[in-house]
Nucleic acid binder design. Structure first.
Length: 739
RNA sequence: GCACCCUUAGCUCAGUUGGUUAGAGCAUUGCAUUCACAUUGCAGGGGUCGGAGGUUCGAGUCCUCCAGGGUGCACCA
């Protein structure tokens, strides 16, 4: 027996060298599984992409849980002989990374404009590289058996080609268009934000009832009202039956008399306020729609920095927040205020990526049309035959509705459909510097690229620059555009003949947090459906948030962050992994405490001691020669076989928590507490025959248990395996026990 | 407003298709421990499974309603 067993298990002294050995021997690659004989040449593929962590800093417990879950499944499938591939990577996370670097620069009292685009991007890239290195280190610490030879970055050369190719194809098909539409504008970060990135914050503030000619209109934002020349009411509203659609009314307004036009539209809620509103199409999505329907004029009131334009008269140049009280004062002086409700509760849209309060604006931007009918030439998606007419929305809906993609837990399907059905065109252009530059060029003779007066026909969309007479659109793409391509851009696309693409797409499993179901999962379904004519994955497994012991979100301000690296140092990666698996089902949040992790450290030690005992007391037997077993030993072996079936079945169906818990109890309270205890006297003073039976069965069950434990606790099981005569090949590429 | 989830031991949570006396970790009580494990073992205490109805031979599990907590989406003039 190896002398190392005379001391307690020390994860911090073994884990790194084990990982290094796995990596050096390329044991994470499907090629090695085949060459070692574990997987057959024509084995079924099992592929999965790592949800690429943002290069904005360090990994947290949520990432650790993700890595643990995925690694368990990957190791399991690899041992079962599938051609198993797990692709790692990181995400440039455009807006998140840029704002992080901007904050760092703020401390040096430098703005990105001081540096200029090029210099600023160098800073971001440096930061991204450092984050990347930290993240890679952390992924390795967790024991994740990803194929590093296939590592990808959402902004590297291959992915960039994929992005430009995808953009051009969608543009040529009319799915990507450039137009003046109302977008979510963040005046603080000076960029558009997609609908999904908006976070509504409840606020209480005054609500003003203003006299608008013969009408009373309600608003919480009097500062937007300067240009209101349309007064809208429901066509069926009896109170306003005497007003006709299109009728003109003279009203006295903030800066003098205006001619208002009556508009009848069913979008009005008759029961809200007076049932009448004026519209500000340039700064409100609903108003914009009404204006579009009736072809009304639209006028900008507020500029990109949140300041009032000349239309505001004496208030021009003021920031809206400063102007509001002044405007209200003037309205009161003119007797236009009917009443003020002081405590009105409403939701204010903010940029969830650390930006400011959203100010809708009409801007010339790039969009993906989700409702445009297109012909999908190549399609393996159930319900969408090749050559049939469909839309991106329908692709997203049918991929899940047909059962081609299974979502676990099931209840997220409803949430997914609700989102798909409410989906509007996706604004994909961002006015930030870090990211994929939009592959569109305009002639350099046009001086202002975003000038709304210029037409779109002079834009060239192509993969490479058309030449020096052309200027590239300064905008970058929403980060989710490139991550949407992730399942196939990591496999060699746009090269359709890429062997990896043929072997591993569609991927088998996508495992990620439920919080990015819309951002990412849905976008991958869209992109893969359109570009590949395939679903991107068969199964979506959604995990929950990792919270603290009391169920609170982990945050710096609460000081309740449990750092995965620190836990790995104290208790080992194996214990950390177990604590993140047991005690939670798919889709539900997990409350984690250091006590819980400590408990699984004890389990590691238990496994270690079982190894020590069994190794020292079964040294003389030959595991390959099965002796006649006593009845008790036969029952013991039978019970183990049941555990094999149970664990196998539950990992296959992604009930990892059940598999892990059962295994934990089996190893500790059956194998150790009962089986070993009962056989101790036999091992010391039993007859030859019954001693051999006891030794062999203990050894057999222990060897099998190590295999079953390996996906959950890869390090300690591999370390023990090394010291066994049975361990001729590393445990990671040893076949799974037969059921 | 629409929808979904949660409510099980002191705390934090498991409990697949309804099936014998409801489980774990931590905490707690007693005993044992020169014995693989001073990171151990054995035994115990603690639960009317949020409330009220219903279906069933049988409900923590299925259905209805109610209460509390949370989340998503919509509205937010």
């Amino acid at each position: 027996m190896d002398n190392k067993f005379l001391e307690p298990y020390k994860p911090d002294q073994t884990e790194d060298s084990i990982y290094a050995a796995w990596e050096k021997d390329r044991l994470f690659t499907p090629e090695k599984a085949i060459s070692s004989g574990l997987a057959k040449q024509d084995a079924v593929s099992f592929s999965i992409v790592l949800p690429p962590p943002n290069v904005t800093g360090v990994l947290h417990m949520g990432h650790a849980a993700m890595l643990a879950i995925e690694d368990i499944v990957v190791r399991f499938e690899r041992m079962r002989g599938k051609r198993t591939l797990w692709i790692p990577g990181t995400d440039h996370a455009a807006i998140a990374t840029q704002s992080k670097v901007e904050k760092l620069l703020e401390k040096e009292k430098v703005s990105k404009y001081d540096l200029g685009r090029e210099e600023f991007l160098k800073r971001v890239e440096r930061f991204a590289q450092e984050s990347h290195d930290t993240i890679v280190h952390q992924i390795k610490k967790m024991g994740a058996s990803v194929d590093w030879g296939r590592e990808a970055y959402t902004l590297d050369e291959n992915r960039s080609l994929a992005v430009r190719t995808a953009f051009k194809r969608m543009y040529d098909d009319g799915l990507i268009y450039r137009g003046h539409r109302i977008v979510n504008w963040d005046p603080k970060m000076q960029t558009t934000v997609s609908d999904d990135e908006i976070e509504y914050v409840e606020m209480t503030g005054p609500f003003y009832y203003l006299k608008y000619g013969p009408f009373v209109i309600g608003t919480s934002r009097p500062e937007t009202k300067f240009g209101d020349r349309y007064v809208v009411m429901h066509p069926d509203d009896a109170r306003y039956a005497r007003y006709a659609h299109g009728q003109k009314v003279e009203v006295e307004w903030i800066n003098g008399p205006v001619t208002a036009t009556i508009i009848k539209d069913t979008a009005i809620d008759m029961s809200f306020g007076s049932g009448v509103m004026t519209i500000t199409p340039w700064h409100d999505a609903v108003d914009f729609d009404i204006a579009e329907r009736h072809r009304l004029d639209k006028e900008q009131i507020i500029d990109e920095r949140g300041k009032l334009l000349p239309i505001a008269g004496e208030f021009a140049g003021m920031h809206i927040s400063k102007a509001r009280p002044e405007i209200v004062k003037k309205l009161e002086q003119k007797g236009l205020v009917e009443k003020i409700e002081e405590r009105y509760v409403h939701n204010v849209a903010t940029n969830s990526r650390g930006g400011g309060v959203i100010e809708p604006q009409i801007k010339l931007q790039w969009f993906i049309d989700v409702n445009k009918p297109i012909t999908l030439e190549r399609s393996n998606i159930d319900g969408i035959p090749p050559g049939s007419l469909t839309t991106l929305k329908e692709i997203m809906r049918k991929s899940v509705a047909s059962g081609a993609i299974e979502i676990l837990p099931d209840r997220f399907k409803k949430i997914y459909f609700q989102w798909v059905d409410n989906l509007r065109d996706w604004c994909i252009s961002r006015q930030i510097w870090y990211g994929h530059r939009i592959p569109a060029w305009i002639p350099s003779t046009i001086s202002i690229p975003n000038d709304p007066k210029r037409d779109n026909e002079r834009v060239k969309v192509q993969i490479e620059s058309p030449g020096s007479d052309w200027v590239q659109d300064p905008d970058t793409l929403d980060t989710w555009f490139s991550s949407g391509l992730w399942t196939f851009s990591t496999l060699g696309w746009p090269d359709q003949d890429s062997p990896d693409l043929k072997l591993y797409h569609p991927t088998s499993l996508l495992e990620t947090g439920y919080d990015i179901l819309f951002f990412w999962v849905a976008r991958m379904i869209l992109m893969s459906g359109y570009h590949m004519g395939e679903v991107p994955f068969r199964t979506v497994y959604l995990h929950g948030l990792v919270r603290d012991a009391k169920g609170r979100k982990m945050s710096k301000s609460l000081g309740n962050i449990i750092d995965p690296l620190e836990m790995i140092v104290k208790y080992g990666a194996d214990a950390t992994r177990m604590s993140l698996i047991i005690g939670t089902g798919p889709g539900s949040d997990l409350n984690l405490s250091e006590d819980k992790i400590r408990a699984y450290k004890k389990f590691s030690n238990k496994v270690w001691n079982i190894a020590r005992f069994i190794l020292s007391s079964t040294e003389e037997i030959d595991p390959a020669k099965r002796p006649t077993l006593s009845d008790a030993d036969q029952r013991f072996v039978d019970e183990y076989d049941e555990i094999v079936s149970y664990v196998t079945e539950h990992i296959s169906t992604y009930k990892l928590h059940l598999a892990a818990e059962r295994l934990y109890h089996y190893v500790w309270h059956t194998l150790a507490d009962i089986a070993i205890e009962e056989r101790k006297s036999l091992l010391r003073e039993g007859g030859d025959e019954e001693r051999r039976s006891a030794q062999w069965s203990l050894r057999y069950v222990f060897i099998g248990s190590l295999k079953l434990l390996h996906p959950f606790m890869p390090f300690i099981t591999e370390e023990i395996w090394k010291s066994l005569p049975e361990g001729t090949q590393p445990l990671i590429i040893t076949p799974w026990p037969k059921t």
